[in-house]
């Protein structure tokens, strides 16, 4: 366990592994997204209440799940970075935060576009929408804090603290629709009862969620490799690697 941890914490080792994994995640993302889109937009029946308009859930719901999932991983990475001073965790925060912010923005945007025809308004200040907006600001705060501090070690430490502090918002987002009266609907899938959604809609929805996760994983790995190269540009393994590739070509 300890050697495993150390091996994975080693930048050159991770750099090489990540390069090998990226294509696999990309292929998995393509397959699940293709099935999810066809199954959701073509094969699934329309909704009894919302007609064809409900189909925006196939983008909206996975992005919202991703926005919360990625923030949770940021907080975990922040804890690891602060406690074990692991460089990879710091690189992960810088790599994943913009991706998480994009998913949050996508969830807010698609939800807003959905809200106009169904609810009759683009935006309301109910507990769910407001807490998701706060999540976007938390992401932007993590990104801004990381880029504002010159020394990347202390930048990552500051960003980690913010990521950890902000994690209290995650259960609030999830339970907001149960704790308070909101205009946003209650949970359909993520509850203890049986999901209250037709299986023909649920399967493509889950496939889209998987696809978003794989897509995120592939992008995060690419961004982490880039971040590692930048952070370690003066170190031995980077110059060794560059020399090797020059010899080859």
């Amino acid at each position: 366990m300890k050697t495993w941890f150390h091996q994975w914490g080693s930048p050159p080792h991770f750099y090489e592994r990540a390069a090998r994994w990226t294509p696999w995640f990309s292929v998995l993302a393509l397959v699940t997204l293709a099935y999810g889109l066809i199954g959701g937009l073509v094969l699934a029946p329309m909704d009894y209440q919302q007609g064809q308009g409900y189909r925006i859930i196939f983008v909206h719901v996975p992005s919202a799940w991703m926005s919360m999932f990625i923030y949770t991983t940021l907080a975990i990475a922040g804890g690891i970075a602060l406690i074990w001073r692991m460089k990879l965790a710091e690189v992960y925060i810088a790599a994943a935060a913009p991706l998480g912010a994009s998913f949050t923005f996508l969830a807010l945007l698609t939800g807003s576009l959905w809200g106009k025809p169904m609810w009759g308004t683009y935006w309301v200040w109910d507990a769910r929408l407001t807490s998701e907006l706060i999540l976007l600001f938390l992401y932007l705060g993590v990104i801004a804090l990381y880029s504002a501090i010159e020394d990347k070690r202390s930048a990552a430490r500051a960003a980690s603290v913010l990521a950890l502090v902000g994690v209290v918002n995650i259960p609030i987002i999830h339970y907001s629709v149960e704790w308070w009266h909101t205009l946003h609907q209650g949970p359909t899938v993520t509850k203890f009862d049986k999901p209250s959604i037709d299986t023909a809609m649920l399967l493509p929805l889950l496939s889209m969620a998987l696809g978003f996760t794989f897509y995120f994983a592939a992008l995060a790995l690419v961004r982490m490799r880039l971040g590692l190269l930048q952070r370690e540009r003066y170190s031995r393994w980077v110059s060794d690697m560059l020399n090797q590739s020059q010899v080859k070509s």
């Binding site: 909704d47 009894y48 919302q50 169904m118 609810w119 308004t121 609907q185 959604i197 037709d198």
Partner: peptide, 17 residues
């Protein structure tokens, strides 16, 4: 101002019927 709230159930019109 009147806003409509939809519930958390998603099903086809046939099933709803």
């Amino acid at each position: 101002e009147v806003l409509a709230k939809h519930d958390e159930n998603y099903m086809s019109p046939e099933v709803a019927e």
